[in-house]
Each structure stands twice: as C-alpha cells, then as structure tokens.
C-alpha cells in the first residue's frame, strides 16, 4: 500500500457544518488504514445543490473551484455517496462545454472515492472484529447505490467489524431528502422519510446506518418518536475500531 500517496479529504459542506464528527471519524479511519490525510482548507461545497436546482452557472463555478483544489492529490475521499457521485458522474458532464476543464474533471473523477469504497478496494483495510458490535440496519443511499453501484462495500466493513445487519424492506428506497426537494415539497419529502423510518424501525435494529450525510440529516429529522438512532458509517466504524 502506498502510504506516500497524497490523500485529500473532501469533507462536504454538510459534514463540515452539521456533523463534523463524521469528518473526524473519516480521518481516523483513513489513518488506521495507513494513510496520511490532508484537508485542503479552502474547500466548501461540491456544487450539487445548485446543480440539482437548475443553477448550472453556479454549479460550474463550484465544480471548477473543487477541481482546482483537489486535482493536485493522488486520491480524494469523501464520506458522502452523493457528493462522490457529483464529482464522478456529474463534473465531467457539467464542464463538458470546456474541453480543458472537461479533461481535468475527468481526471479528478477517476481518482475520487467514497469512503467505504476507498477503504475496501484501495486501502484493502479490514477492521478488526469486535465482540458485542451492534445490530443495525443499513440505508442504501440512492446515488451511491444506483449510480456508483456501492452496495456491498459498507456492509463488508460493518460485518467485518462484527456488526449484525438486519436488512430492512427495500433498503434502497429513497429516504426523501433529495436536497432542495426536501424544502420545496416538504410534505412529500417528509412522507417519504416517514415511510423509510417505518421500514427501518420494523427491523427492530435500533441503529440506522448510512454513508450519506444528507440522508442522515433527513432521517434524523423524522425519527424523534422512534427507538431509532441514525448514524454515519464512519462514526460507527471509528468507534468500533478505536
């Protein structure tokens, strides 16, 4: 493994502002896997919110900005399936009108990884098995599952660490977040989240894990009357492997 490689953490705006403990856990996990992690401090947001709400010019500016900040690194790791998808799947598309930017976006996309993907496939890190690890249910976030096809990776890590996964009915069903959708059509968004939370609660697992800060924020907002706790994959794994 190449510990000499320069790894950048793109923490994402949501983790930065709302759940920084997820970023801290991601750094610790990467360190445990043998990497030195850098955090380019000028980073802000990948631009996905603007892309999703149709503000392309704004998304282009933020995409270019992220390309400039992260392209010097050998690899970029994000604790967010949907921001990873933005860079991997959408940056080249968003910047396709400018051949030079398009090429740079493609190069960045090729070395950008979602956290569990990086740990499993590139770091080949296996968490130590922990006795009394929790029973949990896992929410497959939409873009990570359907566009990046990362369904097994988080489960591999959790299982290796000793967790028991009780699958909920249609674990790949949307949690209702959808970025600005959750504010534009809150009734619909919340109804979807309620359905998701119902299905998670039905597993009686008590712990609901996801790899997407957006989904977590959304589900946390609707679990007050349930016995569920919603946590990020990174924090769960980090605690288990301390």
């Amino acid at each position: 493994m190449s510990e000499s490689k320069r790894i950048a953490l793109m923490v994402t705006c949501l983790v930065d502002q709302v759940m920084p403990e997820v970023g801290v856990a991601a750094v610790r996990l990467l360190q445990r896997a043998g990497y030195t992690v850098d955090f380019p401090t000028e980073q802000t947001c990948c631009g996905q919110p603007f892309f999703n709400s149709g503000f392309r010019d704004q998304a282009v500016k933020l995409a270019r900005r992220a390309v400039e900040i992260f392209e010097p690194y050998d690899a970029v790791v994000l604790p967010s399936g949907s921001c990873t998808t933005m860079i991997r799947a959408e940056y080249p598309h968003v910047l396709e009108a400018w051949p030079e930017w398009y090429e740079r976006a493609r190069q960045l996309a090729a070395k950008t990884y979602e956290l569990s993907e990086f740990l499993v496939h590139w770091a080949r890190w296996q968490p130590p098995h922990v006795a009394n690890a929790p029973t949990l249910t896992y929410h497959d976030s939409c873009h990570m599952n359907r566009l990046l096809h990362l369904k097994q990776e988080p489960r591999t890590l959790l299982t290796a660490a000793g967790c028991t996964i009780v699958e909920m009915n249609e674990s790949d069903r949307c949690c209702g977040f959808g970025g600005v959708f959750s504010i534009r059509l809150p009734e619909v968004s919340n109804a979807m989240t309620a359905e998701k939370v119902r299905r998670a609660a039905a597993t009686e697992a008590g712990l609901l894990v996801s790899s997407d800060p957006g989904c977590l924020m959304q589900m946390r907002g609707m679990i007050k009357n349930t016995p569920l706790r919603a946590e990020h994959l990174a924090t769960v794994l980090e605690e288990l492997t301390r």
Binding site: Q17, V18, M19, P20, E21, S182, I183, P186, E187, S189, N190, T193, M217, Q218, R220, G221, M222, K224
Partner: peptide, 10 residues
C-alpha cells in the same frame, strides 16, 4: 421543512 426537525449547526 414542515414537521421535520431542522438540524442545528455543530
């Protein structure tokens, strides 16, 4: 966000 709780900043 309607009935959904909004997150605070950390």
């Amino acid at each position: 966000a309607g009935e959904r709780d909004l997150p605070s900043l950390a």
